[in-house]
Amino acid sequence: MSHDTAHALHPPTTTGLDNRKLAIWTFIGSEVMFFSALIGTYLVYKGKSVVGPFPHEEWTSPTGEHFEHIFEIPLVTFGTAVLLFSSFFVVLALAGAQRGNRKMLIGWLSATVVAGLFFVGMQVYEFSHFMDKGLGYTTNLFGSTFYTLTGFHGAHVTVGLIWLGTLLILSLRGKIPPEKALNLELAALYWHFVDVVWIVIFPVVYLMK
């Protein structure tokens, strides 16, 4: 209700675009620079680690310790696919919200949240697995840049999950009627942004040697 009154009382916007949608796009534009700085740093430092373990090659330390290559492509491919699908799920949830189709909204929004949780779980497993394989945060440049970049991406996914989870609770209580679909659209835009960042990270970090 408060949302409606607010809109009734505020004069229409100059451009006709919704204020909050414009704000989230502005914020996303700023976030582009944030992730670009992280990805740029990863690229600048790519292949410059003095000691292993390395992303794609095995390595034996001067003391004779042997390290496998770090990346597990099948695992991360799976995670990537799950995150891509979560983007697909959330557009369907949004379509449901806009049409007032509550079942569609709740069903696909739940699916989105589950997929997001899966991705974060994949990343937690991946991190601990890499640690076991000998790649600590302080081990080498690869460790520092890799964990920082993917960690900040994971933190963004987590924030998105909290946001979408809150909306899921609201939708279960019937508080996202069609005229409030924008509330979900904003979260969805953020979620897609987090997804496209991963679309860049996946080939640049994992697949390029």
């Binding site: 740093t41 410059k48 003095v50 945060y137 302080t138 080498n140 440049l141 460790g143 520092s144 920082t148």
Partner: peptide, 12 residues
């Protein structure tokens, strides 16, 4: 946290 971003010994 002891990362290596600007540590020359680690090629930072």
């Amino acid at each position: 946290f002891g990362a290596n971003f600007f540590q020359p010994d680690a090629n930072g």
